[in-house]
Design a protein around this nucleic acid. Sequence first.
DNA 1: ATCTATGCAAAGTATTTGCACAAAG
DNA 2: CTTTGTGCAAATACTTTGCATAGAT
Lengths: 132, 132
Amino acid sequence: MNARRNTRQRETILEVIQNASGPLGVSEILERARTQIPGVGLATVYRTLAMLKEGGQVLEVNLPGEESRFEPGTRHHHHHHFVCQTCHKVFELETCPVGIPAGSVLPGGFRVADHHLTLYGFCPQCDVRKAA
Amino acid sequence: MNARRNTRQRETILEVIQNASGPLGVSEILERARTQIPGVGLATVYRTLAMLKEGGQVLEVNLPGEESRFEPGTRHHHHHHFVCQTCHKVFELETCPVGIPAGSVLPGGFRVADHHLTLYGFCPQCDVRKAA
DNA sequence: ATCTATGCAAAGTATTTGCACAAAG
DNA sequence: CTTTGTGCAAATACTTTGCATAGAT
């Protein structure tokens, strides 16, 4: 019936994402995977990402105007992202400053199940440089 | 030199966005604009949106996995979006449950200038239907 | 041996651009 | 009249899909 198979490309793609310092775009994932398996195809990356996403092993991160990015989902508790407006790097934050527990109902009758927050500003490095 | 011209399509596209109850996708904007100007082209919609976005008259809203949406930028108050996980409609919320004033510095030295929040859950209508 | 996964290329979407004509100023 | 805007179609970018074959079990 339905059996999931362990292939070198799947292993490699997951590793690439797990070894990255931040969320990667599809093209970056392809590039890095190709250093391990030169002939790997773009379609395989997309198919594998869809699979890993379903299994919760990776998370898709969408930032306005950018390509989708992917980050490991394994060690992942609830977290958010910080985008530096100067260097455009994306950071992962531990803090969740949103005062809405899942299950809350907002005025108007909106029952909240989840939320995504993206903070914009200056990362420590760029903030220092600005001040100087 | 550089002169901006007032055309019927620009007026119409802005009106369409301003008269909408929530942020609209490009195809929805095109459809509605065509009820006023049957022959209006898709490229014109994109070009006009880019222009209006630059001028701050409309804001682009990006939700994961969806087409970009556009909403009026005139009534510039701080607000967020609620996406119904059942009917996929997008609502605009008045409440801001994020406890981070602009200018705050997070642990780690991240200076926050702005934030985007998207809530997911069930809108009043779908919530009722689920309960029944 | 069986059936899933891969790689390629083709097909889909979403968005942008080149160009001749229309229209605003 | 001059210059910008429009509509169309072609071009791009990103993502998905069909199919024959490679590869996992």
